[in-house]
Structures are given as C-alpha cells and as structure tokens.
Design a protein around this nucleic acid. Structure first.
Lengths: 144, 144
DNA sequence: GAAATTCCAATCGAATTAGTAGGAATAATA
DNA sequence: TATTATTCCTACTAATTCGATTGGAATTTC
C-alpha cells in the first residue's frame, strides 16, 4: 500500500515550481537541488507532467517549467493518478467494468471499495494551493 | 497503492474458515478449492496467521485450522497488517520515530498522514463478523 | 503402517522500482 | 556564428518484491 517515489516526487516537484514561481521558468536542476532528488530522475517525471499539460516547458538557456493553471486547480489526486496510475487498492476497481468472475460472491470487494473511497476523499480534496498554505504556516512557525 | 494478493488472500482465508466453522478443523485444501487459490500458497499464508495466533492448527488426518477468537474480534486491519506489513502509504509513517531529515519542512507528510488515517478508519472498523453478515446478505439476495 | 494433513525451506520467473547514462534538439546570448 | 544552458528522448540496469512452485519432513488418525 505504498505510494511510489515517482508520485511523491511529482507532488514535491509541482509544489516546488508553484512556490518558486516568479513568472520566469523554474529549472529542473534547481528543483533537484532544493528537493535533494536526482535531476535526471526528475526530468523523467516532469516529462509526464508536461505531456499531460500540467506544466509547460521553455527550452534553451533561461528555460524551465511553469505551471499551466492556478495551484488551486491541481488536486493531489490528479498528480498522483497521473504519475502512479490508479490509486485503487485492488485492480478490479480500476476500470469501469469489473470482469472478475467472483464479483457476485466477493464480499471483500466492499472493503476495497471503502478504502478506495476513503483515499479518494483525501487526495481529491487537497490542492496544491493547500500545500502552499501549509508550507507558509510551517515557515511562519519556524521563523518566530 | 495496491494491497498484495497475500493480504487479500489472507482475508478471504480467514473469512472462509469462519464461514465453514462446524467445530471441526477446516482443511487448507478445501479453502483453496472454494476460493480458487493455490493451496501451496495458502499454506504459506496460513502459517503466518498460525504463528501470530490468529488460527490454531490440528495436524494429521481430519486436521486443519480453527479460528482462535470470535469473528468480531478480528479486524481487517489486523489481518492486513500481519500479512502485508504496515498499511502506511509512506515508510516515514511506519515507525513511532520519523527520522526523515526533511520532516520539519515536509508539507506532503500531512497528505500521507491523512491518507493513512483514512485507510485506518476503514480497515480498523470492519471485522470478520461484518464480512460474514455481508456474505449472508448477498446470499439471501441471490437466493430470492 | 498407510494415508492425510500440517509444517518447513529453498527456489524461481516476471514484474516493478528507482534510478543511471548518454546524447540529441532547441534557444538565448556573447 | 559559436558557446552554452537547458529540455527532450531512449535505452539500460541493479535491486527488490511478488506470486507463486517444488519437494519433502513431521505428525496424527484410522
């Protein structure tokens, strides 16, 4: 039941870009340094976010990445699902159609559904904007 | 974010033993047949449940396994944690002490905590007795 | 003593994870 | 125009985990 580094890094990556948005593109190299993550690995992750239209890229020197939308328009669920794939705890909940031959008798399915709903309830109700706010609260607390 | 077959099979295994409890020990071979799971694999899983004292074994012919406690005393969380290991979505939530050097600045930790709490809220509040009840409800529905 | 069961340990192929490595394409700037 | 800084793309890889399979030893009943 782990969230992979890919998903976790993607969230930190998006948050870092949001926090360091000065209008100029944010370089992956800088994010990697700040977040202490391999820049080559971050490149692969940002490429997913880029292709999905979550960020836009500027190539060449002074290049980098910018968020396409406002932070409040990205939920954690969107970012995790894009990078991790489905967040469902079992594969029979991943698609519209459940073709499991045991599903009529399957009582445990109800358990997995409830877990799924609980997770969704969390990740689909937290946005990047929330993370930014929490970050500032932490910052204020530590600067007193 | 998947629950492995080991954990899922363990729940089905416990439920199957509970449903087929006639006072006589329940054989793994029969569970395997009913649940359509490899009996050799189930052996490994029941061994974990046995060592943890969730079931007791009777060796030899007419042997098998029996639940030690009443179904309402087993939560799904107990079974999953035993067989899967921790259900926490990130490893820094697994132990009492979080030794992550970034934890003071880590805003995403709050997200993982909320996911963790949400999952716990589900699995720690469903017992084997609930699954038995749901099973009978399903059975009644399909027999009308 | 034969048969049915649990118990135990080793092995294994496939998939996944978490990256590394190397360089091509692009664009700003000197 | 040459240099340099960046994104972009593809391939590879080492380690781990997953989901078993295999083979047999120990125990107990009949």
């Amino acid at each position: 039941m782990k969230i992979s580094t890919k998903g976790r890094y993607a969230v930190r990556l998006m948050l870092d870009i949001a926090l360091n948005d000065s209008g100029e593109p944010v370089r992956i190299k800088d994010v990697a340094k700040r977040q202490d993550i391999s820049d080559k690995y971050l490149e692969q992750i940002i490429s997913i976010l880029n292709k999905a239209g979550f960020v836009k890229s500027v190539r060449g020197p002074q290049g980098g990445y910018l968020l396409v939308r406002k932070p409040e328009e990205y939920t954690i669920g969107m970012i995790l699902r894009l990078t991790e794939g489905s967040l469902a705890p079992v594969s029979c909940l991943e698609y519209e159609v459940n073709d499991c031959p045991r599903q009529d008798q399957c009582v445990t399915l109800e358990v997995w559904k409830r877990i799924d709903d609980a997770v969704k309830g969390v990740v689909d109700n937290i946005t990047l904007a929330d993370l930014i706010e929490w970050h500032h609260q932490k910052g204020d607390y530590y600067s007193i």
